[in-house]
Nucleic acid binder design. Structure first.
Lengths: 195, 195
DNA sequence: TCACAATTAAACACAGTGTGCGGCAACCAA
DNA sequence: TTGGTTGCCGCACACTGTGTTTAATTGTGA
Protein backbone atom coordinates (compact mmCIF):
# COMPACT_ATOMS: atom_id res chain seq x y z
CA UNK A 1 0.00 0.00 0.00
CA UNK A 2 2.13 2.83 -1.29
CA UNK A 3 1.11 6.42 -1.10
CA UNK A 4 1.35 8.36 -4.31
CA UNK A 5 4.08 10.91 -4.35
CA UNK A 6 5.00 10.42 -0.73
CA UNK A 7 8.65 9.72 -0.21
CA UNK A 8 9.27 7.41 2.73
CA UNK A 9 12.06 9.68 3.88
CA UNK A 10 9.86 12.72 4.31
CA UNK A 11 7.28 10.70 6.22
CA UNK A 12 9.92 9.31 8.53
CA UNK A 13 11.49 12.71 9.05
CA UNK A 14 8.21 14.37 9.89
CA UNK A 15 7.22 11.58 12.27
CA UNK A 16 10.56 11.83 14.05
CA UNK A 17 10.20 15.54 14.46
CA UNK A 18 6.69 15.37 15.83
CA UNK A 19 7.62 12.64 18.26
CA UNK A 20 10.71 14.54 19.34
CA UNK A 21 8.70 17.66 20.00
CA UNK A 22 6.18 15.82 22.17
CA UNK A 23 8.91 14.14 24.18
CA UNK A 24 10.76 17.37 24.69
CA UNK A 25 7.64 19.28 25.72
CA UNK A 26 6.91 16.65 28.36
CA UNK A 27 10.50 16.79 29.51
CA UNK A 28 11.14 20.54 29.71
CA UNK A 29 8.03 22.42 28.64
CA UNK A 30 7.18 23.96 25.28
CA UNK A 31 8.81 27.32 25.86
CA UNK A 32 12.25 26.04 26.66
CA UNK A 33 12.36 23.60 23.76
CA UNK A 34 14.63 24.88 20.99
CA UNK A 35 14.86 23.88 17.37
CA UNK A 36 18.32 22.67 18.25
CA UNK A 37 16.86 20.28 20.83
CA UNK A 38 14.28 18.98 18.37
CA UNK A 39 16.69 18.16 15.60
CA UNK A 40 19.12 16.58 18.02
CA UNK A 41 16.41 14.42 19.55
CA UNK A 42 15.06 13.47 16.14
CA UNK A 43 18.46 13.03 14.50
CA UNK A 44 17.57 15.31 11.67
CA UNK A 45 19.72 17.87 9.93
CA UNK A 46 19.13 21.52 10.58
CA UNK A 47 18.40 22.38 6.97
CA UNK A 48 16.02 19.45 6.70
CA UNK A 49 13.96 20.80 9.53
CA UNK A 50 13.61 24.18 7.90
CA UNK A 51 12.74 22.59 4.57
CA UNK A 52 9.68 21.04 6.24
CA UNK A 53 8.62 23.67 8.74
CA UNK A 54 9.17 27.36 9.20
CA UNK A 55 9.98 26.89 12.86
CA UNK A 56 9.01 25.33 16.16
CA UNK A 57 5.53 26.78 16.15
CA UNK A 58 4.79 25.56 12.65
CA UNK A 59 5.80 22.03 13.57
CA UNK A 60 3.61 22.25 16.63
CA UNK A 61 0.59 23.53 14.74
CA UNK A 62 0.76 20.79 12.13
CA UNK A 63 0.86 18.19 14.86
CA UNK A 64 -2.02 19.81 16.64
CA UNK A 65 -4.06 19.88 13.46
CA UNK A 66 -3.71 16.17 12.84
CA UNK A 67 -4.62 15.41 16.43
CA UNK A 68 -7.66 17.59 16.10
CA UNK A 69 -8.65 15.68 12.99
CA UNK A 70 -8.35 12.38 14.84
CA UNK A 71 -10.51 13.80 17.59
CA UNK A 72 -13.09 14.90 15.05
CA UNK A 73 -13.30 11.40 13.63
CA UNK A 74 -13.63 9.92 17.09
CA UNK A 75 -16.41 12.38 17.89
CA UNK A 76 -18.34 11.34 14.80
CA UNK A 77 -17.82 7.67 15.49
CA UNK A 78 -18.95 8.02 19.07
CA UNK A 79 -22.01 10.08 18.31
CA UNK A 80 -23.05 7.75 15.50
CA UNK A 81 -22.74 4.56 17.50
CA UNK A 82 -24.50 5.82 20.59
CA UNK A 83 -27.90 6.61 19.22
CA UNK A 84 -30.06 9.01 21.10
CA UNK A 85 -27.08 10.63 22.70
CA UNK A 86 -26.45 12.82 19.73
CA UNK A 87 -28.85 15.52 20.75
CA UNK A 88 -27.83 15.59 24.40
CA UNK A 89 -26.32 18.81 25.62
CA UNK A 90 -22.53 19.03 25.92
CA UNK A 91 -22.19 15.85 23.89
CA UNK A 92 -18.63 16.74 22.93
CA UNK A 93 -17.35 16.10 26.41
CA UNK A 94 -17.39 12.31 26.66
CA UNK A 95 -15.62 11.56 23.36
CA UNK A 96 -13.04 14.15 24.20
CA UNK A 97 -12.21 12.62 27.56
CA UNK A 98 -12.01 9.22 25.88
CA UNK A 99 -9.75 10.53 23.20
CA UNK A 100 -7.54 12.17 25.80
CA UNK A 101 -7.28 8.87 27.68
CA UNK A 102 -6.22 7.14 24.47
CA UNK A 103 -3.57 9.74 23.72
CA UNK A 104 -2.62 10.68 27.22
CA UNK A 105 0.99 11.61 26.47
CA UNK A 106 0.12 13.98 23.69
CA UNK A 107 -2.68 15.59 25.64
CA UNK A 108 -0.43 16.05 28.63
CA UNK A 109 2.05 17.77 26.40
CA UNK A 110 -0.67 20.13 25.26
CA UNK A 111 -2.93 21.19 28.07
CA UNK A 112 -0.82 21.38 31.20
CA UNK A 113 1.68 24.03 32.06
CA UNK A 114 4.04 22.11 29.81
CA UNK A 115 2.25 23.25 26.69
CA UNK A 116 2.83 26.85 25.78
CA UNK A 117 0.49 29.71 25.04
CA UNK A 118 0.25 28.58 21.45
CA UNK A 119 -1.25 25.30 22.54
CA UNK A 120 -3.64 26.82 25.02
CA UNK A 121 -4.85 29.36 22.53
CA UNK A 122 -5.46 26.74 19.84
CA UNK A 123 -7.35 24.49 22.20
CA UNK A 124 -9.35 27.37 23.58
CA UNK A 125 -10.40 28.46 20.10
CA UNK A 126 -11.25 24.93 19.07
CA UNK A 127 -13.31 24.25 22.18
CA UNK A 128 -15.13 27.55 21.84
CA UNK A 129 -16.34 26.57 18.40
CA UNK A 130 -17.33 23.14 19.65
CA UNK A 131 -19.30 24.47 22.59
CA UNK A 132 -20.91 27.22 20.58
CA UNK A 133 -22.17 24.71 18.05
CA UNK A 134 -23.28 22.41 20.83
CA UNK A 135 -25.32 25.04 22.61
CA UNK A 136 -26.82 26.33 19.39
CA UNK A 137 -27.91 22.80 18.54
CA UNK A 138 -29.42 22.05 21.93
CA UNK A 139 -30.66 25.41 23.12
CA UNK A 140 -31.26 27.14 19.81
CA UNK A 141 -29.73 30.39 18.59
CA UNK A 142 -29.07 33.19 21.01
CA UNK A 143 -31.89 35.64 20.87
CA UNK A 144 -30.96 38.03 23.65
CA UNK A 145 -29.01 41.07 22.53
CA UNK A 146 -26.59 40.90 25.43
CA UNK A 147 -23.51 38.72 25.27
CA UNK A 148 -24.93 36.25 27.75
CA UNK A 149 -24.60 33.28 25.44
CA UNK A 150 -20.99 34.11 24.72
CA UNK A 151 -20.32 34.43 28.42
CA UNK A 152 -21.77 31.00 29.07
CA UNK A 153 -19.60 29.55 26.33
CA UNK A 154 -16.46 31.02 27.84
CA UNK A 155 -17.51 29.78 31.25
CA UNK A 156 -17.97 26.24 30.03
CA UNK A 157 -14.78 26.20 27.96
CA UNK A 158 -12.69 27.49 30.83
CA UNK A 159 -14.18 25.01 33.23
CA UNK A 160 -13.72 22.13 30.82
CA UNK A 161 -10.07 22.90 30.15
CA UNK A 162 -9.40 23.15 33.86
CA UNK A 163 -11.07 19.83 34.56
CA UNK A 164 -9.32 18.14 31.67
CA UNK A 165 -5.94 19.40 32.82
CA UNK A 166 -6.58 18.35 36.38
CA UNK A 167 -7.72 14.94 35.26
CA UNK A 168 -4.66 14.34 33.09
CA UNK A 169 -2.26 15.34 35.83
CA UNK A 170 -4.14 13.44 38.47
CA UNK A 171 -2.38 10.34 39.72
CA UNK A 172 -5.41 8.22 40.52
CA UNK A 173 -6.99 7.59 37.21
CA UNK A 174 -10.66 8.18 37.07
CA UNK A 175 -12.32 6.55 34.05
CA UNK A 176 -13.36 8.92 31.26
CA UNK A 177 -17.06 8.23 31.69
CA UNK A 178 -16.91 9.23 35.33
CA UNK A 179 -15.05 12.46 34.89
CA UNK A 180 -17.38 13.23 32.01
CA UNK A 181 -20.41 12.66 34.21
CA UNK A 182 -18.99 14.95 36.86
CA UNK A 183 -18.14 17.68 34.46
CA UNK A 184 -21.45 17.58 32.67
CA UNK A 185 -23.51 17.57 35.80
CA UNK A 186 -21.67 20.65 37.01
CA UNK A 187 -21.71 22.49 33.71
CA UNK A 188 -25.32 21.67 33.00
CA UNK A 189 -26.54 23.46 36.08
CA UNK A 190 -24.56 26.55 35.16
CA UNK A 191 -25.94 26.64 31.68
CA UNK A 192 -29.52 26.15 32.72
CA UNK A 193 -29.24 28.80 35.40
CA UNK A 194 -28.66 31.48 32.78
CA UNK A 195 -28.11 30.34 29.22
CA UNK B 1 7.90 61.24 54.23
CA UNK B 2 11.15 59.62 53.29
CA UNK B 3 11.61 55.90 53.08
CA UNK B 4 14.55 54.59 54.97
CA UNK B 5 17.29 53.21 52.82
CA UNK B 6 15.38 53.63 49.56
CA UNK B 7 17.36 55.54 46.97
CA UNK B 8 15.16 57.60 44.68
CA UNK B 9 17.10 56.33 41.72
CA UNK B 10 16.35 52.69 42.35
CA UNK B 11 12.68 53.44 42.85
CA UNK B 12 12.50 55.33 39.60
CA UNK B 13 14.39 52.65 37.74
CA UNK B 14 12.19 49.86 39.01
CA UNK B 15 9.02 51.79 38.26
CA UNK B 16 10.21 52.48 34.72
CA UNK B 17 10.99 48.83 34.15
CA UNK B 18 7.66 47.62 35.42
CA UNK B 19 5.75 50.15 33.36
CA UNK B 20 7.81 49.29 30.30
CA UNK B 21 7.08 45.60 30.71
CA UNK B 22 3.34 46.15 30.97
CA UNK B 23 3.31 48.39 27.91
CA UNK B 24 5.35 45.93 25.90
CA UNK B 25 3.21 42.96 26.91
CA UNK B 26 0.10 44.81 25.77
CA UNK B 27 1.83 45.74 22.54
CA UNK B 28 3.44 42.46 21.49
CA UNK B 29 2.67 39.77 24.06
CA UNK B 30 4.81 38.50 26.91
CA UNK B 31 6.67 35.86 24.98
CA UNK B 32 8.06 38.12 22.31
CA UNK B 33 9.18 40.80 24.73
CA UNK B 34 12.96 40.76 25.15
CA UNK B 35 15.12 42.26 27.85
CA UNK B 36 16.49 44.46 25.11
CA UNK B 37 13.01 45.83 24.42
CA UNK B 38 12.40 46.49 28.08
CA UNK B 39 15.57 48.46 28.73
CA UNK B 40 15.11 50.43 25.52
CA UNK B 41 11.52 51.31 26.43
CA UNK B 42 12.49 52.18 30.00
CA UNK B 43 15.71 53.96 29.07
CA UNK B 44 17.72 51.90 31.48
CA UNK B 45 21.18 50.47 31.07
CA UNK B 46 21.62 46.79 30.49
CA UNK B 47 23.77 46.21 33.55
CA UNK B 48 21.33 48.21 35.65
CA UNK B 49 18.54 45.86 34.69
CA UNK B 50 20.49 42.80 35.71
CA UNK B 51 21.51 44.45 38.97
CA UNK B 52 17.84 44.62 39.92
CA UNK B 53 16.38 41.48 38.40
CA UNK B 54 17.74 38.18 37.23
CA UNK B 55 15.75 38.39 34.02
CA UNK B 56 12.42 39.08 32.38
CA UNK B 57 10.57 36.54 34.47
CA UNK B 58 11.93 37.91 37.74
CA UNK B 59 10.79 41.41 36.84
CA UNK B 60 7.40 40.05 35.95
CA UNK B 61 7.02 38.07 39.17
CA UNK B 62 7.90 41.02 41.37
CA UNK B 63 5.30 43.12 39.61
CA UNK B 64 2.75 40.37 39.93
CA UNK B 65 3.46 40.03 43.63
CA UNK B 66 2.82 43.67 44.39
CA UNK B 67 -0.38 43.59 42.37
CA UNK B 68 -1.48 40.55 44.30
CA UNK B 69 -0.80 42.38 47.53
CA UNK B 70 -2.92 45.30 46.40
CA UNK B 71 -5.68 42.87 45.55
CA UNK B 72 -5.42 41.29 48.98
CA UNK B 73 -5.83 44.66 50.65
CA UNK B 74 -8.81 45.46 48.48
CA UNK B 75 -10.36 42.11 49.33
CA UNK B 76 -10.03 42.79 53.05
CA UNK B 77 -11.39 46.30 52.74
CA UNK B 78 -14.36 45.13 50.70
CA UNK B 79 -15.23 42.24 52.97
CA UNK B 80 -14.92 44.37 56.07
CA UNK B 81 -17.10 47.19 54.81
CA UNK B 82 -19.89 45.05 53.44
CA UNK B 83 -21.04 43.30 56.54
CA UNK B 84 -22.99 40.12 56.15
CA UNK B 85 -21.40 39.41 52.81
CA UNK B 86 -18.29 37.99 54.36
CA UNK B 87 -19.69 34.53 54.80
CA UNK B 88 -21.30 34.32 51.40
CA UNK B 89 -19.94 31.68 49.09
CA UNK B 90 -17.48 32.78 46.38
CA UNK B 91 -17.04 36.12 48.10
CA UNK B 92 -13.66 36.64 46.41
CA UNK B 93 -15.28 37.21 43.04
CA UNK B 94 -16.76 40.68 43.40
CA UNK B 95 -13.68 42.44 44.84
CA UNK B 96 -11.57 40.81 42.19
CA UNK B 97 -13.71 42.07 39.33
CA UNK B 98 -13.67 45.52 40.90
CA UNK B 99 -9.92 45.43 41.28
CA UNK B 100 -9.56 44.33 37.69
CA UNK B 101 -11.72 47.22 36.56
CA UNK B 102 -9.53 49.63 38.51
CA UNK B 103 -6.34 48.22 36.99
CA UNK B 104 -7.64 47.21 33.61
CA UNK B 105 -4.39 47.70 31.72
CA UNK B 106 -2.36 45.55 34.05
CA UNK B 107 -4.97 42.84 34.20
CA UNK B 108 -5.22 42.78 30.43
CA UNK B 109 -1.49 42.34 30.26
CA UNK B 110 -1.78 39.35 32.56
CA UNK B 111 -4.76 37.21 31.77
CA UNK B 112 -5.32 37.36 28.04
CA UNK B 113 -3.26 35.66 25.41
CA UNK B 114 -0.88 38.55 25.82
CA UNK B 115 0.29 37.27 29.17
CA UNK B 116 2.56 34.26 29.03
CA UNK B 117 2.41 30.88 30.71
CA UNK B 118 4.19 32.33 33.73
CA UNK B 119 1.33 34.72 34.33
CA UNK B 120 -1.36 32.14 33.79
CA UNK B 121 0.30 29.69 36.12
CA UNK B 122 0.73 32.28 38.89
CA UNK B 123 -2.86 33.40 38.64
CA UNK B 124 -4.12 29.86 38.52
CA UNK B 125 -2.22 28.93 41.65
CA UNK B 126 -3.32 32.06 43.45
CA UNK B 127 -6.97 31.59 42.56
CA UNK B 128 -6.87 27.94 43.52
CA UNK B 129 -5.83 28.87 47.05
CA UNK B 130 -8.46 31.56 47.19
CA UNK B 131 -11.25 29.26 46.09
CA UNK B 132 -10.10 26.41 48.26
CA UNK B 133 -10.19 28.65 51.33
CA UNK B 134 -13.53 30.05 50.27
CA UNK B 135 -15.17 26.67 49.89
CA UNK B 136 -13.66 25.37 53.11
CA UNK B 137 -15.05 28.40 54.92
CA UNK B 138 -18.53 28.14 53.45
CA UNK B 139 -18.99 24.42 52.91
CA UNK B 140 -16.66 23.05 55.56
CA UNK B 141 -13.74 20.71 55.06
CA UNK B 142 -13.92 18.02 52.42
CA UNK B 143 -14.93 14.79 54.02
CA UNK B 144 -15.30 12.53 51.03
CA UNK B 145 -12.24 10.47 50.18
CA UNK B 146 -12.46 11.12 46.47
CA UNK B 147 -10.98 14.23 44.95
CA UNK B 148 -14.38 15.72 44.30
CA UNK B 149 -13.68 18.90 46.21
CA UNK B 150 -10.46 19.44 44.32
CA UNK B 151 -12.28 18.89 41.06
CA UNK B 152 -14.87 21.50 41.96
CA UNK B 153 -12.12 23.96 42.79
CA UNK B 154 -10.46 23.46 39.44
CA UNK B 155 -13.79 23.79 37.71
CA UNK B 156 -14.54 27.09 39.40
CA UNK B 157 -11.05 28.50 38.89
CA UNK B 158 -11.03 27.63 35.21
CA UNK B 159 -14.46 29.12 34.71
CA UNK B 160 -13.58 32.27 36.60
CA UNK B 161 -10.40 32.90 34.65
CA UNK B 162 -12.24 32.41 31.39
CA UNK B 163 -14.99 34.82 32.38
CA UNK B 164 -12.50 37.38 33.64
CA UNK B 165 -10.52 37.20 30.42
CA UNK B 166 -13.61 37.51 28.29
CA UNK B 167 -14.83 40.43 30.33
CA UNK B 168 -11.54 42.31 30.07
CA UNK B 169 -11.35 41.85 26.32
CA UNK B 170 -14.99 42.66 25.80
CA UNK B 171 -15.63 46.00 24.15
CA UNK B 172 -18.94 46.84 25.77
CA UNK B 173 -18.08 47.28 29.39
CA UNK B 174 -20.32 45.48 31.77
CA UNK B 175 -20.07 46.81 35.33
CA UNK B 176 -18.17 44.63 37.79
CA UNK B 177 -21.19 43.94 39.95
CA UNK B 178 -23.12 42.58 37.00
CA UNK B 179 -20.44 40.26 35.68
CA UNK B 180 -19.91 39.12 39.23
CA UNK B 181 -23.59 38.32 39.64
CA UNK B 182 -23.54 36.32 36.42
CA UNK B 183 -20.47 34.41 37.32
CA UNK B 184 -21.60 33.59 40.82
CA UNK B 185 -25.05 32.49 39.80
CA UNK B 186 -23.50 30.09 37.28
CA UNK B 187 -20.77 28.81 39.54
CA UNK B 188 -23.05 28.42 42.53
CA UNK B 189 -25.25 25.92 40.76
CA UNK B 190 -22.24 23.87 39.77
CA UNK B 191 -20.91 23.76 43.27
CA UNK B 192 -24.20 22.86 44.85
CA UNK B 193 -24.85 20.14 42.29
CA UNK B 194 -21.83 18.23 43.59
CA UNK B 195 -20.33 20.20 46.42
C1' DT C 1 19.71 1.19 -13.40
C1' DC C 2 19.29 6.12 -13.06
C1' DA C 3 17.50 10.65 -12.60
C1' DC C 4 15.65 13.13 -9.04
C1' DA C 5 14.48 14.40 -4.58
C1' DA C 6 15.60 14.41 0.25
C1' DT C 7 19.07 14.72 3.65
C1' DT C 8 23.36 16.24 5.41
C1' DA C 9 27.31 19.01 7.54
C1' DA C 10 29.37 23.22 7.61
C1' DA C 11 29.58 27.98 7.60
C1' DC C 12 27.38 32.50 7.90
C1' DA C 13 25.21 36.85 9.66
C1' DC C 14 22.26 38.11 13.00
C1' DA C 15 19.73 38.84 17.52
C1' DG C 16 19.43 38.21 22.27
C1' DT C 17 21.57 36.85 26.78
C1' DG C 18 24.12 37.42 31.02
C1' DT C 19 28.53 39.26 33.04
C1' DG C 20 32.35 42.35 34.08
C1' DC C 21 34.57 46.82 34.46
C1' DG C 22 35.85 51.87 34.73
C1' DG C 23 34.00 56.28 34.84
C1' DC C 24 30.42 59.42 35.95
C1' DA C 25 26.53 61.48 38.42
C1' DA C 26 22.95 61.41 41.79
C1' DC C 27 22.01 60.78 46.38
C1' DC C 28 21.91 61.04 51.55
C1' DA C 29 23.77 62.25 55.74
C1' DA C 30 26.55 65.05 58.50
C1' DT D 1 28.12 72.46 51.31
C1' DT D 2 30.79 68.72 51.31
C1' DG D 3 32.28 63.96 50.99
C1' DG D 4 31.73 59.21 50.82
C1' DT D 5 28.59 55.96 49.03
C1' DT D 6 25.64 54.05 45.79
C1' DG D 7 23.38 53.47 41.58
C1' DC D 8 23.63 54.09 36.76
C1' DC D 9 25.77 53.90 32.21
C1' DG D 10 28.25 52.44 28.05
C1' DC D 11 31.00 49.29 26.25
C1' DA D 12 32.87 44.89 25.40
C1' DC D 13 32.93 39.89 25.74
C1' DA D 14 31.65 34.99 25.36
C1' DC D 15 27.81 32.30 24.57
C1' DT D 16 23.45 30.24 22.73
C1' DG D 17 20.04 29.96 19.37
C1' DT D 18 18.10 31.32 14.75
C1' DG D 19 17.28 30.95 9.85
C1' DT D 20 19.65 30.61 5.30
C1' DT D 21 22.83 28.98 1.89
C1' DT D 22 26.07 25.88 -0.28
C1' DA D 23 27.95 21.71 -2.20
C1' DA D 24 28.23 16.91 -1.48
C1' DT D 25 25.93 12.51 -0.38
C1' DT D 26 22.41 9.10 -0.06
C1' DG D 27 17.70 6.99 -0.60
C1' DT D 28 13.73 6.48 -3.50
C1' DG D 29 10.46 5.40 -7.02
C1' DA D 30 9.83 4.43 -11.78
Amino acid sequence: MKKNGEDRRTAKTRASLHQALISLILRKGYDSVTVQDIIDEANVGRSTFYSHYTGKEDLFRKGFDSLRQLLGEHQNRALRSRAGVKDRILAFSRPMFEHAADHKEVYQALVGNRGGMVALYQIQRFLTELVRADLTATLGADKSNTGQRELVIQFVVGAFMAVLTWWLDHKARIPPERIDAWFRSMAMESILSIG
